[in-house]
Design a protein around this nucleic acid. Structure first.
Lengths: 195, 195
DNA sequence: CTATATTCTTAACCCAAGTTAAGATCGTCA
DNA sequence: TGACGATCTTAACTTGGGTTAAGAATATAG
């Protein structure tokens, strides 16, 4: 399967984009590869592209003014959309960095082209709405994790629900994602051995 | 100003709904009042209505299985939309309770009518998108509060940004919203006296 | 204006995460 | 293989929230 076919298939799964609707978009998608540590989008930049990950893992993180620590907010991996959603839809500067954690390949489309597609086909409008709902779900799930669960519960749920991330990311990045320091994660892991 | 005019004005401010577009919706809006403690929507119910608050304050809360405690997730007040967003857009059962904390009055519209309006006017499509973005911002802000701020910082920001809520809600509800117990909020307040 | 319920604060004790620094383990590549 | 850097764990101590229960302050109603 070619990369374009993979994209076509994924968009069909995600939003029912059919062959004709996909054809409309075909001229607009571009391909890009990232080395480990390269940025998809940086703090204070406006996010102008929506990406589809063919391979690799990205993380978006915040830098805390006071502690100067990086705090991981989201991970994005294979066959997912990667975008700084708020910055993208409002075309305002981003509060985060989004960095490739591995060698990665994406296909991406410019916001102007996407907006153009919204006008041309209801399939693409539907796509836009579904991206919005996905972004909402990501943010709400994250809020719920922190409001309702302990760090230990968050750790267990990450292993359950996102083994792909757990298995491909160093523990200190996991700790940051869980909202705790590396030594605390070590203690949690130690505590759990007895269970 | 009549209640309908207030709604018209608010929708115009929020999403540029003009007189003609508002006319389309006029037959669909209904009025409802709530006593203190009455529910806008309950756990396991599908949220079928989107409300606009003319007066009053609502809270949506989660009941933790283990501790059986209520955890406040959002407050909604005058001139805001009240809705259980995820339940509303997916028409699936809600995880939360949304309760009126005061005597309240809302105007509300059924999802089927709203969907109908989406098809009739780009103004209403725009409204749908803006509600989605508002819901995303609410959820993302909440996630950021918990990921990046201490309880004390969250308390200060609530006073700064939402004095209307702070001044009209008992402290034990504020504590729950901040993700801490009432005695902890008391300690924070005490600590801060010296500043 | 008192009685009552609600809300808020305080105290004492417990426990988990933060902090810092040291050392163990793992990977990788010359 | 051996040496370096990266990652992970551990220890000792500090800090702040959780828990429980008591009591103080505030509202509300009779």
């Amino acid at each position: 399967m070619t990369e374009t076919q993979i994209l076509n298939y994924a968009l069909n799964q995600f939003a029912g984009i059919d062959a004709a609707a996909f054809e409309l978009s075909a001229p607009y998608w571009q391909r890009k590869t990232y080395g480990k540590g390269e940025f998809y989008n940086e703090y204070k930049n406006v996010c102008k592209y929506l990406g589809f990950i063919l391979d690799g893992v990205f993380r978006t993180y915040y830098i805390d003014d006071e502690s100067a620590e990086e705090k991981n907010v989201f991970f994005f991996s294979k066959n997912q959309v990667v975008v700084a959603y708020k910055s993208f839809v409002t075309q305002t500067p981003c509060s985060y960095y989004t960095e490739s954690m591995t060698e990665s390949t994406i296909l991406y489309i410019h916001i102007n082209h996407l907006t153009e597609l919204y006008g041309k086909s209801h399939h693409w409008e539907r796509f836009g709405r579904l991206v919005a709902e996905t972004a909402f779900n990501l943010a709400m799930n994250r809020a719920e994790e922190f409001m309702f669960r302990t760090p230990e519960q968050r750790y267990l749920e990450l292993i359950q629900n996102h083994p792909d991330i757990f298995n491909n990311v160093p523990l200190y990045h996991i700790a940051s994602y869980l909202g705790i320091q590396a030594p605390s994660l070590s203690r949690i892991r130690k505590r759990m051995v007895g269970k």
